[in-house]
Amino acid sequence: MRGSEGIADQAIRWSARLHAGGLTAAEEAELASWRRAHPDHEHELQIQLAVQQAASALPRGLVQRLYGGELPQRPVPGRRRALRAGALALTAGAAGALAWTLRDHAPPEYFASHTTPKGGREHVTLPDGSELVMNTDTRLDVAFHPDRRLVTLYQGEALFDVRPDPGRAFIVDSALARIRVAGTRFNVRREHEDVQVIVQVGAVLVQSGRWWRRHDTRLEAGQGLHVQADGSQSVPRDINMAADLAWVDGRLVFRDVPLARVAIELNRYLVAPLRLADEQVGRLRLSASFWLDDPEGIVAGLPAVLPVVLARQADGGILVARAPGNV
């Protein structure tokens, strides 16, 4: 077994090898030694064997949905050992996916749902002392289990300040990505088919992609990355914390940003939409800092810092166009 693996991962691999059959005498001795090494080993192995037994009784279509879709075709290696290795890898990955799915649906010790309206923010203190700040239009669930603290982020953005707990990892699941930490301060933003992760203090592990094409990236303090809809991850980059996390202090900071991007950010806070007349006005660049408590006031102030005019539309939205003589 790999020394860097956790007990659950080791148990998944052993249960997969038992399922594949044909253990050699040396492998049987290794398994027996592993099971005796610690009571948690045997306990976790029995859990994984139960998962496999439960999966065998489920309809194939349901198992595929639990795994996240159709399973990829198994490769056909030329050698018997390679074929066994491929089957073992697929079985271990499938068992792991189903195991975590069943674990995440177990009744939690603590559960709470939190939401913020457009333009709102909320500070939440969790039972373990961890804190989170929710940004505008955010929805999430918090569930504490004996072995983990799980936050499911459905939409929006939140800054997490996590208290260390060696026995329970802190996990943020945003569907596209799973962020695992021990104790740190980090930000997760989910919008449409993109998830952004920023680490302010400490480090986090960002996991994404299907189990057969998993991406794992360790982010250090001052770094950030994006996760796309297909599970791919951008290269970690240095982050301007003062600008990207200014919302926590109630501000929006733009530094030489196209107005098209400014409009996207402002629309996260505005009830009535802000629209641009054309691509040309969207290319205007803005450097400014605004208070978030009055997003409509930010829009009203745009003509003071850019050559634009505003027009109220029938649905209450605002159209931004180039000012006459500045086309």
Score class of each variant (00 low, 15 high):
174 S>I: 08
158 A>C: 02
130 S>C: 12
84 R>V: 13
115 T>D: 14
190 R>C: 01
154 Y>A: 07
135 N>F: 01
79 R>I: 06
122 E>M: 09
167 G>M: 05
176 L>R: 08
123 H>M: 05
87 A>G: 06
134 M>R: 08
178 R>W: 01
186 F>R: 02
182 A>S: 09
90 L>W: 13
82 A>I: 10
173 D>Y: 09
173 D>E: 13
158 A>Y: 05
154 Y>G: 00
184 T>H: 11
151 V>I: 15
144 F>R: 10
179 I>C: 00
149 R>T: 01
85 A>K: 05
155 Q>H: 01
157 E>S: 05
167 G>P: 02
77 P>A: 00
163 R>M: 07
191 E>H: 15
155 Q>F: 01
191 E>F: 03
113 S>M: 03
99 A>S: 11
170 F>D: 07
86 G>D: 13
80 R>D: 10
146 P>S: 13
184 T>K: 08
175 A>T: 15
154 Y>V: 08
120 G>R: 00
177 A>W: 01
181 V>M: 03
131 E>F: 09
129 G>Q: 09
147 D>Q: 14
118 K>C: 01
94 A>M: 05
112 A>K: 05
160 F>G: 11
180 R>A: 04
141 D>G: 04
90 L>E: 15
179 I>W: 04
121 R>K: 05
163 R>V: 13
91 T>Y: 06
184 T>S: 07
158 A>K: 09
136 T>P: 03
121 R>C: 01
87 A>I: 15
77 P>K: 02
131 E>K: 10
103 R>F: 13
140 L>M: 10
121 R>D: 00
77 P>S: 01
123 H>V: 11
81 R>Y: 00
163 R>E: 14
85 A>L: 12
125 T>Q: 10
163 R>D: 03
127 P>T: 06
117 P>K: 15
89 A>D: 08
81 R>P: 00
171 I>T: 13
91 T>R: 11
166 P>Y: 06
106 A>Q: 15
82 A>T: 07
134 M>L: 15
179 I>R: 06
95 A>K: 00
171 I>R: 15
186 F>Y: 14
190 R>W: 01
96 G>T: 08
163 R>L: 11
90 L>Y: 13
151 V>N: 00
178 R>C: 05
117 P>V: 06
162 V>Y: 04
162 V>S: 12
149 R>F: 11
154 Y>I: 00
170 F>N: 03
138 T>M: 14
169 A>S: 14
103 R>Q: 15
176 L>Y: 06
189 R>G: 06
176 L>H: 06
150 L>I: 11
113 S>A: 13
149 R>H: 02
118 K>Y: 10
117 P>D: 09
171 I>A: 07
129 G>S: 07
160 F>Y: 13
160 F>K: 07
114 H>A: 04
111 F>E: 13
130 S>R: 07
121 R>A: 14
115 T>R: 14
162 V>H: 14
104 D>S: 13
138 T>V: 04
140 L>E: 00
94 A>E: 14
138 T>A: 07
179 I>E: 08
86 G>I: 02
